[in-house]
């Protein structure tokens, strides 16, 4: 049992002791009568069609199911306010256009549904930021059980000068192979063969001691090391410079391909994903500070934001 756990147990025991005379009662909740708002969720990237989900919010203690809005009217406009396309309902509150988004462009979404008034949001697609180069090195795992099975991944990024840029980096394990002895059904003998794995991209849990990533951390660092599946960072500390970043896999089997995915995000997309990440991390912890999830929908809730992604595949 680690120290925090022990402390919590003792604290809970103390709280129970103190609360022997405590009274619990249901009280009126002012949020009970909160007026539902239209919710728009849509993220767009280069060369992909616009797609959003339309629903409405409910009061926090309302136990009814949130229903998708299927009677909505959704349209996208460009940065000059010119009409781009009208989105068609394709089922379950999802609306899709036939037009694709382009890098560097700004788009505004306007949506309405039933008695809900029109809501809108505007955002842009930042330039794609390619991974200039990458390399790897074997590393000691922080878990002694894995011995020296860790892997350090390094990648280099050239940040453009004069603009504020926001990034997210993730590593996926996608496909791979290994060689093993398998029984030949025709002869019944064991022969060497290549076993291919294709399990779809799986996001990996990472750590880093990279100072830029640490400085942007939301406090999920431990002992000077940052842990997580997605690292969020801005160019605040290296604006206009080329920088080499370090990521670590605590355990890498060496039999699957790795994909480094670098997302160049608009500030809205970055803030949304970052706060959602934090929301999930602290969910269920009664002692953590509650998390506000970012929204940029005027008159409603949700997110309308752009991003572009680049990746590098490390094949083994």
């Amino acid at each position: 049992m680690n120290t925090p756990t022990l402390f919590f147990r003792i604290l809970i025991a103390s709280a129970l002791l103190l609360s022997t005379g405590a009274c619990t009662k249901f009280i009126d909740f002012e949020g009970e009568d909160s007026t539902p708002r239209l919710v728009v969720n849509g993220a767009f990237q280069p060369d992909s069609v616009f797609e959003i989900e339309l629903s409405n919010s409910l009061g926090f203690i309302d136990i009814s199911q949130i229903q998708p809005r299927t009677d909505g009217s959704v349209a996208v406009y460009d940065g000059n306010g010119s009409f781009v396309d009208s989105l068609t309902h394709i089922g379950d509150g999802r609306y899709r256009s036939n037009v694709t988004a382009a890098v560097g462009n700004t788009y505004t979404v306007r949506a309405s549904s039933g008695a809900f008034g029109e809501v809108s949001a505007t955002d842009y697609i930042p330039d794609i930021m390619p991974i200039d180069s990458w390399d790897t090195a074997s590393a000691a795992s922080s878990d002694p059980f894995f011995d020296n099975s860790g892997l350090d991944i390094f990648f280099t990024l050239s940040d453009p000068a004069g603009s504020e840029n926001f990034y997210m980096v993730e590593v996926f394990e996608s496909a791979g192979y290994y060689i093993d002895y398998v029984m030949d059904p025709s002869t019944g003998e064991f022969v060497q063969d290549t076993i291919y794995l294709d399990f779809g991209p799986q996001k990996l849990y990472l750590s880093t001691t990279d100072q830029v990533l640490l400085s942007e951390a939301d406090g999920f660092a431990d002992g000077g090391e940052l842990y997580g599946e997605t690292f969020f960072f801005s160019d605040r500390l290296f604006n206009g410079n080329i920088r080499r970043f370090q990521l670590r896999l605590d355990y890498y089997s060496g039999i699957a391909n790795l994909e480094i995915r670098l997302t160049s995000a608009s500030q809205s997309y970055w803030r949304y994903r970052r706060t959602i990440d934090r929301y999930d991390y602290s969910s269920g912890d009664p002692f953590s500070e509650p998390v506000q999830v970012f929204t940029n929908i005027e008159g409603g809730l949700g997110i309308w934001a752009g991003f572009s992604a680049s990746s590098a595949v490390i094949e083994f």
């Binding site: 640490l214 406090g219 002992g223 912890d285």
Partner: peptide
């Protein structure tokens, strides 16, 4: 002030990252 999502009993070495 503690940041959104900051835990209750983090390692003190990292307190600067939580506030």
């Amino acid at each position: 002030e503690y940041r959104d999502g900051a835990g209750f009993f983090g390692n003190a070495t990292d307190w600067q990252g939580q506030v």
